[in-house]
């Protein structure tokens, strides 16, 4: 096996490892988010100190997700990075524009309900998934 083949084998392994690490951090973050959200209601009866600790843990796991995501991006090859960064750029734009428009609808009472951050997160998630899919199709 040549050096380049060994190097490539390592790259694929590194991408896989980075993906698994990102998945683990994301899963841990989601669990901590659920705990910080529902814990005060159903587990520790709104105890302030425990709630603060739960939120801090969620924040720390969130930082872990950001670092794992950055490391994952660094392991991708240049086309994969281009597709991912394009999807991220579109998601950021949609998140900002749609988020502010949605907020304006709420502030001006055009919509009767309160603007929920979860709606924005859903839109951003869908935008990222669709943008990534379209990107892969474009270069396949």
């Amino acid at each position: 096996m040549s050096n380049s083949e060994r190097c490539s084998g390592n790259r694929q392994k590194r991408v896989k490892e980075a993906t698994v690490r990102l998945g683990i951090w994301t899963f841990a973050w989601l669990i901590s988010l659920a705990l910080a959200t529902f814990g005060p209601l159903f587990i520790w009866d709104s105890h302030k100190l425990i709630t603060i600790i739960a939120i801090l843990i969620n924040l720390i796991f969130g930082i872990g997700v950001i670092i794992a995501n950055k490391n994952h991006l660094a392991e991708l090859d240049e086309l994969q990075q281009k597709i991912t960064l394009n999807a991220m750029a579109i998601t950021l734009g949609v998140g900002l524009i749609a988020g502010l428009s949605y907020s304006l609808l709420d502030v001006t009472n055009i919509v009767s309900f309160d603007a929920e951050i979860s709606h924005l997160v859903t839109i951003m998630g869908l935008t990222y998934a669709i943008s990534t899919f379209v990107g892969h199709r474009k270069y396949s």
């Binding site: 040549s2 380049s4 083949e5 490539s8 090859d77 086309l79 994969q80």
Partner: peptide, 12 residues
């Protein structure tokens, strides 16, 4: 493998 990129990149 030899260029240390994905097959998708070579295809593109």
């Amino acid at each position: 493998e030899r260029l240390d990129v994905s097959r998708q990149t070579i295809n593109a």
